[in-house]
Design a protein around this nucleic acid. Structure first.
Lengths: 329, 329
DNA sequence: AACTTCGATGCAATCGATTGCTTTACTCGA
DNA sequence: TCGAGTAAAGCAATCGATTGCATCGAAGTT
């Protein structure tokens, strides 16, 4: 069917091992022989079989990427960056969607493990213990989770939340709420702690949740927010924030007139929503790129991985002030 | 390293070929032997190597999915559905992003061809001739493109455009515009033709474009729309429509008061935008599922593929009337 | 009882590449 | 001139599974 190394060998009148070397260890064959082989390969349109190579070398040149939910607009830019980075390194990317389900997440990693050199777990919903267990079978890199011994890239949402809360305090708000995300989310904890810490004694902050991080959940908590008397809200992500704004608007509560709302992620939605959403900008694409590079660096090494300390990368965040925040009424 | 078929064979005291058969041709081994083998496999935690299997059988149980732009919110639901469908069939999905570039698209297909059983091309930007060429090397399935001999799933946007234009005509509009998408887009042509056909002699429709299908391009054509005197616009997709609305609003043109706007795709943005966007609902997820099934059916068959006529699936579309359309001023 | 038949299993080739080891042949030094 | 050293290329094992063929023994046929 396809052109194999044998065909090239026959065409160039050499043994297959010589063809293999001409391609991967150029200095080990005589220049003229190599030229003849390359020419034959070119003429025949030879492309080495990744599958066969994987069998002998144990390296597939494939990477797995597991995300909590592809449909969450937070992920696509990250997937895109990861895919491009991987391809630039001659790797291909399996993308798998865990549907926000920890069990599926673990299954996916195991299933992928058989045919990838490593897996990037994005915003994992499974426990640290389970991640540790999975990491025994296959090199992992984490996004938005930090575990000793496993390379990871996180967004500095502690800083982001501090900026957001400070912004609200500066505007004069004293009764705040944090609309939380999934309990298993590492960033959720970071945000909650940082927000509480920043508020200090100056004001008070109420935590509402945990919630599934989508618009529907946001709309559903609108009533509680409206009744609670808070004047400003920080939400776990843009989806919750936008859902909340819709819910509040439906209840006749004006944003930002009556209640200010801040989202997180700066997804496409933030700029397009009305009012446009004040939100924390997180470097999603950079995270995708960094995760791939960390994984390759860690997994590509000379096997004595355990010895090297795993790298942790923290990416900076910023606050984008738009139209959903204003002084309290 | 990992448990192989040999380990199982030793554990169960049989030859490896018997293990292989026990797993894939159960009726070919004595029940008691099979039980012993399965038990041994279970105890050792044996998982067959997909790579090794792929080498002998030629089937990788992997599928490639190439999309024009992951960051375009049209695609994620489709990717998600495709991934879930594939996984349910024990296939894994490579996702690749062509960045709206035809050359990259072709490269991706070729690169993936070596390690997948087939490729789904979503909203391809390359020419029919090139697709035909690619199809010679690897089974393809197309989404939003129809070519004889290649299985495809399309959205009935001719019908959708008809509904949209009829809606505008019913509201009383007589001067319409179609803000077109990429020239290479097959659906773009379908929409344009159907819209023109539906307008007939009753009214007139101007075509503006082609455009890159993103918000920025939408904003950029706002001026032309405002000056052209049209009272209603159909845009190639929601991104263009939303960008256009923003552009018009900035120019002081009210939507839908002065100009009505209809988008296509019903992405998350449509509901969340202000005003919420009247748009054509396309069954993105169904398309993803259908494409995978078509591909597997076509590629999984008994090799004499050319003989079977390729299936074409057309999915229905609907119009969702929201707040961006109203009678002309 | 001899002979066919067939089910169950083992044997060995194969897929396409990589790689340690061996062979070949040429160069160089004394 | 001869042996050592070395670069270049061939040989063959290997990765982990699949699969056509060979073998063997038990059951069925006459």
């Amino acid at each position: 069917m396809a052109v194999t190394i044998k065909d090239v060998a026959r065409e160039a009148q050499v043994h297959i091992s010589t063809v293999s070397r001409a391609l991967s260890m150029p200095h080990r064959v005589r220049p003229e022989t190599r030229a003849r082989i390359l020419e034959a390969a070119r003429r025949l349109g030879y492309q080495p079989s990744r599958v066969a190579r994987a069998l002998t070398t144990g390296r597939t040149y494939n990477i797995g990427l597991v995300v909590a939910d592809i449909a969450n607009p937070f992920f696509p830019p990250m997937i895109k960056a990861a895919e491009h980075t991987a391809r630039a390194r001659d790797y291909h990317l399996f993308v798998a969607d865990a549907s926000e389900d920890p069990a599926i997440e673990a299954e996916l990693v195991d299933a992928l493990a058989k045919q990838v050199d490593g897996v990037v777990l994005c915003a994992p919903r499974i426990s640290n213990a389970n991640i540790d267990r999975l990491a025994q079978n296959i090199p992992l890199a984490l996004v938005n989770r930090k575990i000793d011994g496993i390379p990871s890239v996180t967004m500095d949402l502690a800083e982001g939340a501090r900026l957001a809360v400070t912004h609200l305090l500066d505007l004069g708000h004293r009764r705040l709420a944090y609309v939380a995300g999934p309990r298993q989310s590492w960033t959720n904890t970071q945000i909650r702690r940082s927000a509480a810490g920043t508020v200090g004694d100056e004001a008070e902050i109420e935590v509402i949740g945990p919630n599934t991080p989508n618009e529907k959940a946001g709309t559903e908590v609108a009533k509680r927010i409206a009744e609670s008397g808070v004047t400003a809200v920080l939400a776990y992500n843009d989806l919750l924030a936008i859902g909340l704004i819709q819910g509040l608007t439906d209840l006749g509560v004006d944003v930002p007139g009556d209640v200010s709302v801040i989202g997180i992620d700066d997804t496409v939605l933030a700029r397009l929503a009305k009012p446009s959403l004040t939100t924390i900008i997180v470097p999603t694409a950079d995270a995708g790129t960094a995760a791939i590079d960390l994984l390759l660096q860690y997994a590509g090494g000379d096997s004595d991985l355990g010895s090297r300390p795993a790298a942790h990368v923290s990416l900076p965040t910023k606050l984008a002030v738009r139209d959903s925040t204003a002084p309290p009424p």
